[in-house]
Simulated assay, not measured.
Amino acid sequence: MNKQARGRAATLAMTLTLALASGAALAHPQAGGAHTHGFLDGFTHPFTGLDHLLAMLAVGIWSVRQSNARWLQGVFIGMVMVGMASGAAGLAIPGLETGIAATVVLMGILIALAARLPAAAGAAMVGAFALLHGNAHGHELPQAASALGLLLASGLLVVGGSVLGRFGPSLALKLSGAAIAATGVMLVATV
């Protein structure tokens, strides 16, 4: 596939992903409530909330442009696991939903600006973002089966984002970053 065809395919994939996700609400129930706890419930959970879907895709998109790209995705998934364990253990993080929405804003801005960070700063930021997302999931999906499903889906979304980041045209990626950031601002406003 030539470069132009790859660019069109990546642009189409980003457009379809954002379009399919546009009707989704926040993945977390606002007034208590809980999800069931099977593998499929965990697997579908990241796809049902615009905040998680965009954050995980954005981590993948942004990470491939970083000097430590090979291990940023692993840092993200590893810290999602740590966050899930903390949530399942009952650790409550104040302002969790606002923090999660803010991760979408910040990742979108980083993509829009094609920002590069030093390896340690990038890893710390991605790790902190993953901790927030994982903590929220740990509260809602504390069972091992749901955790495995969630980790698999999260990994697929991050890898999918990295494919988009690797093959997407620079301008399309920057515009996608701006759209992700704008969506994040709307999510912050609705929390």
Rank of each mutant, 00 (worst) to 15 (best):
M1V: 10
K3D: 15
R6D: 12
G7F: 10
M14L: 14
L16M: 04
L16T: 07
L16V: 10
T17E: 02
A21E: 02
A24H: 11
A24N: 11
L26H: 15
L26V: 15
A27L: 14
G32H: 09
H35Y: 13
H37I: 09
H37C: 15
H37P: 10
G38T: 14
L40C: 02
D41G: 07
T44Q: 11
H45Q: 09
G49R: 01
G49K: 03
L50E: 00
L50S: 07
L50T: 10
D51H: 01
H52A: 11
L54E: 02
I61L: 06
W62K: 01
S63G: 07
S63N: 07
S67L: 02
A69E: 05
W71V: 14
L72H: 03
G78R: 09
M79S: 12
M79I: 08
V82I: 14
V82A: 15
V82G: 06
S86H: 12
G87A: 05
A88C: 07
G90N: 08
L91V: 13
L91M: 14
G95P: 04
A101I: 10
L106K: 03
G108N: 05
A115S: 15
A123T: 06
M125Q: 11
F129L: 11
H133P: 12
H137S: 14
H137P: 01
G138W: 04
H139Q: 12
E140L: 15
A144Y: 14
S146W: 07
A147W: 11
L150D: 10
L152A: 07
S154K: 06
V158G: 05
V159A: 12
G161K: 06
G161D: 03
S162Y: 02
V163K: 03
V163L: 05
L164R: 00
F167P: 02
G168P: 08
L173Y: 01
L173R: 05
K174W: 00
S176L: 03
I180H: 01
M186S: 13
M186C: 14
V191K: 07
